[in-house]
């Protein structure tokens, strides 16, 4: 078995205690994924595991064996062209220090897919109805697992709104 990280097959660590986050950063030298709190409170370490957003700090690397992991490094095109959401973050000042940004962007990309599937959130008024209406309140609730200590949340929400409109168009 192996872990597929951004399309590349890698071995899980020998020591079962190693988190997916430390495996990515320290063993695979993919330092785009950030270590914030290392206890599941900040979202800076968010990556996609088989397409779903998860916290890599609370995932043992061994648990990702046999799975697909996508990190921020896989987002831009090989030519270097940025993903639409990366461009929107720049456009809307969705960052200041930038430390939370990879987690914010990975999280938002999975969030867009959850919305497309019609998954409800805590603020969705009618849980039995069809796909939720995308409002700022929905985006804020769905992104609450990603903290920005610089307080760029308004720009982050605007950037995500932009991407969702662009994708829907």
């Amino acid at each position: 078995m192996s872990i597929r990280v951004n399309g590349m097959e890698v071995l899980p660590p020998d020591d079962a205690r190693v988190s997916l986050l430390d495996h990515l950063r320290e063993h695979l030298h993919l330092s785009g994924t950030k270590k914030g709190c290392d206890q599941g409170a900040c979202g800076a370490c968010t990556v996609l595991l088989d397409g779903n957003r998860v916290l890599s700090c609370l995932t043992l690397a061994a648990q990702a064996d046999g799975s697909n992991v996508q990190t921020i490094e896989a987002l831009a095109a090989e030519s270097g062209a940025l993903h639409a959401l990366q461009r929107a973050f720049i456009e809307h000042d969705g960052l200041q220090c930038g430390y939370c940004t990879p987690g914010q962007i990975c999280s938002a990309i999975a969030m867009a897919e959850e919305l497309r599937r019609g998954d409800p959130s805590y603020v969705t008024l009618d849980l039995a109805a069809g796909p939720p209406v995308v409002t700022r309140a929905e985006i804020r609730e769905r992104m609450s697992g990603n903290l920005c200590r610089c307080g760029a949340h308004n720009g982050i929400v605007e950037a995500i709104e932009d991407m969702l409109v662009e994708t829907a168009a």
């Binding site: 599941g40 779903n52 957003r53 998860v54 609370l58 995932t59 998954d119 409800p120 805590y122 697992g145």
Partner: peptide, 29 residues
Amino acid sequence: LAAHPLVRHRYPVLARALLAGASAQIRNM
């Protein structure tokens, strides 16, 4: 579980409680 149609339609209290917990990343795990 929170997104499952039978839970959303028949047990709305459970769907809402699940969605009140933690964050989207943690609920996925």
